[in-house]
Design a protein around this nucleic acid. Sequence first.
RNA 1: GGGAGUAUAGCUCAGCGGGAGAGCAUUCGCUUCACACGCGAAGGGUCACAAGUUCAAUCCUUGUUACUCCCA
Length: 945
Amino acid sequence: MLEKTYDSAAVEPKIARKWDEADAFRAGANAKPDAETFTIVIPPPNVTGSLHMGHALNNTLQDILVRFERMRGKDVLWQPGMDHAGIATQMVVERKLMEQQLPGRREMGREAFIDKIWEWKEESGGLIFNQLKRLGASCDWSRERFTMDEGLSAAVLEVFVTLYKEGLIYKDKRLVNWDPKLLTAISDMEVEQIEVKGNLWHLRYPLEEGVTYQHPVAFDEEGKATEFETRDYLVVATTRPETLLGDTGVAVNPEDERYKSIVGKHVILPIVGRRIPIVADDYADPTAGTGAVKMTPAHDFNDFEVGKRTGLRRINILNIDATITIKDNEDFLEGLDDPEALHGAWDELEGKDRFEARKIVVRIMEEAGLLDAIEPHKHMVPHGDRGGVPIEPRLTEQWWVDNKTLAQPAIASVREGRTKFVPKSWENTYFQWMENIQPWCISRQLWWGHQIPAWYGPDGQVFVEKTEEEALQAAIQHYLSHEGPMKALVEDLLENFKPGEILTRDEDVLETWFSSALWPFSTLGWPDQTPELERYYPTNVLVTGFDIIPFWVVRMMQMGMHFMKDADGNPVEPFHTVYIHALVRDKNGQKMSKSKGNVIDPLELIDQYGADATRFTLAAMAAQGRDIKLATSRVEGYRNFVTKLWNAARFLEMNECFRVEGFDPKATTLPLNRWIIGATARGAAAVTKGIEDFKFNEAANAAYDFVWGTFCDWYVEFAKPVFMGENEAAKAETRATAAWALDQILAILHPFMPFVTEELWAETGKTGPARENLLILGQWPDLAGLEDAKADAELSWLIDVISNARSVRSEMNVPASAKLSLVVVGASETTLARLVAGTSLITRLARLEDITPQATAPANSAQFVVGEATWALPLADFIDLAVEKARLSKEVDKLNAEISQIDKKLGNEQFVAKAPEEVIEEQKARRQAAVERRDHILEALKRLS
RNA sequence: GGGAGUAUAGCUCAGCGGGAGAGCAUUCGCUUCACACGCGAAGGGUCACAAGUUCAAUCCUUGUUACUCCCA
């Protein structure tokens, strides 16, 4: 006997163990012979990660697809794995060392630190997998991969070396986003623009000796200058005054009348004393600030470009940690004549943090009378998304991927429909991103990650090979074949060769996304040509959030199409469908974040409501193209659904609805059973279509409506009198049908609610023929051809009569306990025939005494119309004539409104001429039905007065 | 500044060129022999605003307003 309520906390671990013991998640489990494959690679969570709502949604949707296809008999692989998460992991372990007051990473050195990270990974990494298992994710855990494991590292080496030799990876000195906290370059995508309240400081830059210009100070109504003053200085506006130290020019717009006369002249840079030119460039916006912009080409992306166009010097004035370096900075000192007078200021600034230096620069300028104005200013400041501090553009040598070249096949694939986004609107975003793609900076000044396979010779010559051995061979060959001092040096070194003497390895590692870009094929064994690679690549669908389209999706497409080729050498996409799901927000539509305190922890939901309710909620709310605003009341509602299902099964169990060997739904005879069988088929088809179309909400709602609204609310109620009756044949058929229908229900709900359905599958398996398999390895219902229109019509008539009778009772305030007689007037043969079998059901569900056909309705009756017949409830004791009249009149009004609306349409010649025939017919039919119904009610009304 | 999206019941959201829907919430009634995490019933919407296309617009087009997101 089943318990009264379902105890998810007790059942879930038990079911998880069963799946595990049956090896049910293994690739190919339940596959039919010659089955097609269905492959999904999991978006690898960070090794440092823990489950949040986004993961819960992402993995629920994948698991629904995977369980669905597994039940359909496909050869399913859901490939799990984790990402080594370079910066994040390094930060976690560094923090841990600090907490334990152990030596920092620099003290312990690279090798020891990396060992520490591996240690940490073994102990506390991958927590998220246990959490995913609690959610029910049926990944093939035996195939778990890690972006730093041996095989994936081999894939990284192969890709890096190949792309380098093809010229698609190169080293370049450019401005990069530099994180002064983490001391590494980061990619554009890791930069977050955050609005900051700052100031716009207006600074005076004196023009060099003898130079002046006329600056407008008053204007007429049309904005024309009417008065000028003679100035021997320029005013520039800046949000970062400390960068003044690295200024090498001032830019004005070539069309700007104010400054035309001084283009090509010079200013003397305050504090520094450098003579720097005034240049003309379109970048300067005459309407912004003062129209004159200070240029710091080594510390600003725009200035860098302007500087390139106008030939300005680049002077770096910041250390890697964004402290000021000028005193021993050759770059800075070059070109300065006699700076002694300024040494005081330099001493003060040297070594100061950039924000400290900002204050000092402002103070010095103010003291010198060169601070014109301070204007409060809100602006966007780029921040590193990991370190959380403002980034500094910094001129460094880094490794780059030629993204533009790799993007072309990936763009074509989407254009030509070989890769589809669902919903399609994301394709726009994709194109927008791909067509403006920038070179991708892949080197990071970190220790945790794939170290770049590049070695440098004594003269800095670079050798990129998969191993040091190969690099050394390449180096020797290179040096010995070129005459010159290097040849002698290398020959000499080779005499007493010690490793490391000729070559030194590049210290940098690759950014995390580089290895995840290879995920769809590296996890299958590439670069080895494994059977898995052959069988499961390309994958079928990628399920992910839109926020990582540029980080991950496009890069997988680029790499996949570059490295994976079919027999004819054509690129093979890593997947053909990209399903982009929503962001999970809180119930007010706010992004969940720790700082706002509005985070809903999926594990707490699972604890409180169960994994099934949590999953079902996410699926039911996953409408395409819309964010999910999650309220726990919804989860509670679906928890109730789980209980409802449980109790329906419990009811069937109590009534001995056991499965029958060889039950054939087509052979049933009772309309009740033929109807529920057809309805089950429709329900299953709707769920199937929903999942196939990635409309998870439609699938979930179809299942919910059918199970609760049809099976529980009507079928089970109809079955009760049968179970309590004397007709043994009817009882047997209904029991068998009910058991069959529950089996189908468990199957169609399984992808959404795997635990409770698996548990009920086991419980219901205790009677009747033995189950062949766990439900996870069961069969997806394919029930086409089981519908019976006659049974459907009969049952919907029954439901109609009962609903109407209930409604009238309720509206007339008839006490629930009162049992009434129902009179049917004007009943056709069909109705009378239906009543033979239906009377017991109607009386039971509408709480009636009996039903009798009569020629006329009794006086003081409440009446309703179903089909051709009028039904009357004699309510002598309860009826309030006025209330009943009002109720019927209201319905007449409604029908009249509908009729006149249709008449208006049908009276319109244009409509009759142009509308399709079936639309006109439909309107006529609707009018007919409304008129008949109205007339019946009018008659009923007449009888009342 | 550029781009995208959204606007439908109190809330959260489906839907759709031809009859306005669900869940939750609300109200009323119910110890109806699975389930109160339940059963039955009810109320509630100018489908943001304006114009256009159409025989017909909540739906298509354009504009406006508001909100959200992405990029700069």
